[in-house]
């Protein structure tokens, strides 16, 4: 689970560093990833690799549409307004999904076999290995994209100082669009790999989104490695809590973490906001 939180948190971090917006619809990208892949694989019977690519493309289009239709027209608005707009978007997407796919959790077949394998004395599902493998791959890809390509460098430039970036020919609006597309595609991938473990349902995005945010906040919204550590730490803390205290309070752990991180960092974070 920690790996998934990390990937969702990655989406938050990408959008936040580039645009300064916390995108409440990030969890909905994950949900869409799960539900769309369910439809393509189970209902249309597409082979897995094709369904994988199609899902990423479709959800990325949703991310692009979200950026073009809501964030771009409201660019002048305050941060609070932008938050409320993304909350509206999240509600909208979730409710449409609830209407379209129904409210039942849908089983999605795992990528390869549903049996478990023994590993260092513990039993793990093969799908869990997929989750970890894809997370590592995704993190590496995003890292390379941000640090080794022109697009990545432009994204970073726009994040650091959008006016200076525009002086050297980087369009901040395009970069905002790219960041949403990137966040949507990582979200979609997260949704696809987690769906076989947790089932896909229209409301899976809420908690995953929140926990992804906690992971991102624990990483300080700065870099990829911070998010990765944050996600893993949160996943570990949750399973420990579920094991030793009670699984009923599993979700509360993330919120307590959220508070701890926000309050400990409040001075830094407040300073950052004024920028």
């Amino acid at each position: 689970m920690g790996a998934i939180y990390a990937v969702v948190g990655l989406g938050f971090t990408i959008i936040y560093t580039v645009t300064g917006v916390i995108n409440f619809a990030q969890g909905e990208f994950v949900m869409l990833g799960g539900m769309v892949s369910f439809s393509l694989i189970t209902a249309l019977g597409l082979p897995l690799p094709l369904a994988f690519v199609l899902t990423v493309v479709l959800v990325t289009l949703v991310g692009v549409a979200l950026n073009l239709l809501t964030i771009r027209p409201a660019r002048q608005a305050s941060n609070i307004s932008l938050i409320i707009i993304t909350i509206g978007a999240a509600l909208f997407i979730r409710a449409i999904a609830g209407l379209g796919w129904g409210k039942n959790a849908q089983p999605v077949p795992p990528f390869t076999g549903s049996e478990t394998i023994g590993f260092l004395g513990a039993y793990v599902r093969i799908q869990s290995l997929w989750v970890i493998g894809i997370t590592v791959l995704l993190v590496l890809l995003v890292y390379l994209l941000l640090n080794r390509t022109l697009v990545g460098k432009s994204l970073k430039a726009a994040a650091i100082n959008s006016r200076a970036a525009s002086l050297v020919g980087i369009d901040a609006r395009t970069m905002s669009l790219v960041s949403f597309a990137l966040a949507a595609s990582t979200g979609a991938i997260a949704g696809m790999v987690i769906a076989p473990i947790s089932f896909a349902s229209y409301d899976m995005g809420v908690m995953l989104g929140l926990k992804g945010f906690v992971a991102a906040a624990m990483g300080g919204f700065t870099g990829i490695w911070g998010v990765l550590l944050g996600g893993m730490g949160l996943g570990l803390a949750e399973s420990l809590a579920a094991g030793y205290v009670s699984s009923a309070y599993k979700d509360a752990i993330a919120m307590v973490f959220l508070f701890a991180v926000l309050l400990i960092n409040s001075r830094n974070l407040a300073g950052e906001e004024k920028r």
Partner: peptide, 11 residues
């Protein structure tokens, strides 16, 4: 309220 904006919303 030591937090602002985004972080306040999340808290």
């Amino acid at each position: 309220f030591r937090l602002r904006g985004n972080y306040l919303a999340m808290a």
